[in-house]
Simulated scan of single mutants.
Amino acid sequence: MKNIITLKNIIWRRDGSEVLSDINWQVNEGEQWAILGLNGAGKTSLLDIIMGYNYPTQGEATVNGTEFGKMSLPEMRKRIGYVSSSLDKFNQTLNRETALSIILSGKFSSFGIYQEVDEASRHDAEKILHQLGLTYLKDRTYDSFSQGEKRRILIGRALMGQPDLLILDEPCSGLDVRAREDVLNIVRQIPNDNRHLIYVTHHIEELIPTISHVLLIKDGRILSAGKKEDVLTDKNLSETYKTNVEIIFNNNRPSLVIKDLEDKDEKNI
């Protein structure tokens, strides 16, 4: 079985402090993963390792067949699609661009198009717009989109690069229920193109059946990792979120219920 991500004994330190400790994690072909954890648990640091923006202080990392320290990380990044609220820093550029041009820019891993675009690429971008149900935005500019439309367009931009691995970092943050479900409908389709997904969220109700595996991270360490049904337990989630919770499945989607919150010490809430 092909390994998509292999992290062995990873430690990452920043300013003398150990942010990630003893990280051992493997993503295999055909698996679609979610990462859950509190703010500050180490989720972003883990993503930065995967994308090669942070180099492990100790340990071995291989992503998409690229072994860190032996192969080109910039070349590896070209095969990873990434969508996060951190892309908002490019809004000044994006606001002037049409939906079609934003999708097209994903081919060049740029914000804005600075190269000639051939007809085949234009056709591919229009096809993605159609698949996302956003053809009506083709000639409209980004500043006129709703928040849900913006997220879907940025996912389309990431898909234009034909990535092997797609990382969605809290893609539904700040969206209403309808916009969230529109984004999740796109997520459902990702494995159909033999792509692999890393989906980061605070909200377990976003873990649709497409998500097959879950990694729980707490205080820079992996608390649990494996098949979704094995990892998502009351005990594991209560420890991850430092709050007494109960997990309920409805139509194969999980949700959380907070238990006895008024009896918890403030430090555990």
Rank of each mutant, 00 (worst) to 15 (best):
V63D: 09
F68H: 06
R221K: 15
E205H: 15
V63K: 08
D193C: 04
G69S: 09
K150N: 02
L184F: 03
I5M: 13
D176I: 02
G220S: 07
E29Q: 13
R77D: 07
H202V: 07
K150E: 11
D234T: 03
F111Q: 07
Y53K: 11
G16N: 12
G37L: 14
V83S: 12
K259F: 01
I10C: 12
I103T: 07
D260N: 15
G59K: 06
I211V: 15
N3L: 02
L94T: 00
P254F: 10
D182C: 08
A225R: 04
E205R: 13
K150W: 09
D176V: 06
K8Y: 02
E262M: 02
I247R: 01
E126T: 09
L207E: 09
N244P: 01
S121C: 04
T135I: 08
I113H: 05
E29G: 05
L197H: 03
L36M: 13
N244V: 05
K43T: 04
N3A: 06
T66F: 15
I248G: 02
K138C: 01
R151E: 10
D169I: 04
K235N: 10
Q115T: 10
K107Y: 12
Y142C: 14
E116F: 09
K89Q: 14
Q162H: 14
N244T: 14
S21E: 11
I128E: 12
V245E: 07
E67K: 15
D143P: 02
V27D: 04
E181Q: 14
I248D: 01
M51W: 03
L154K: 00
D182L: 08
K218C: 07
S121F: 07
N236W: 08
P171C: 09
V245M: 13
V63R: 02
F249E: 15
E181M: 13
I222N: 02
V19K: 10
D265N: 14
I208Y: 11
I80G: 07
K8C: 07
V187H: 05
I35S: 10
S110G: 01
K2R: 12
Y241R: 12
D230V: 01
S173M: 10
I248K: 12
R77I: 08
P74N: 02
L207H: 10
A120G: 05
A61F: 01
I4C: 05
N64W: 03
L168S: 00
D124T: 03
A225K: 11
M76G: 04
H123P: 01
N3M: 11
I167L: 08
G174Y: 13
G30P: 11
I113E: 07
R157M: 00
N194D: 03
F90C: 10
T210F: 10
L207M: 08
D15R: 15
D88P: 00
N268G: 06
E126H: 06
V231A: 09
Y114K: 15
I258H: 07
L216W: 08
G106F: 00
E239R: 14
V27P: 06
I211R: 05
A61D: 00
A225M: 08
S109G: 03
Y199K: 06
T44V: 06
F90S: 13
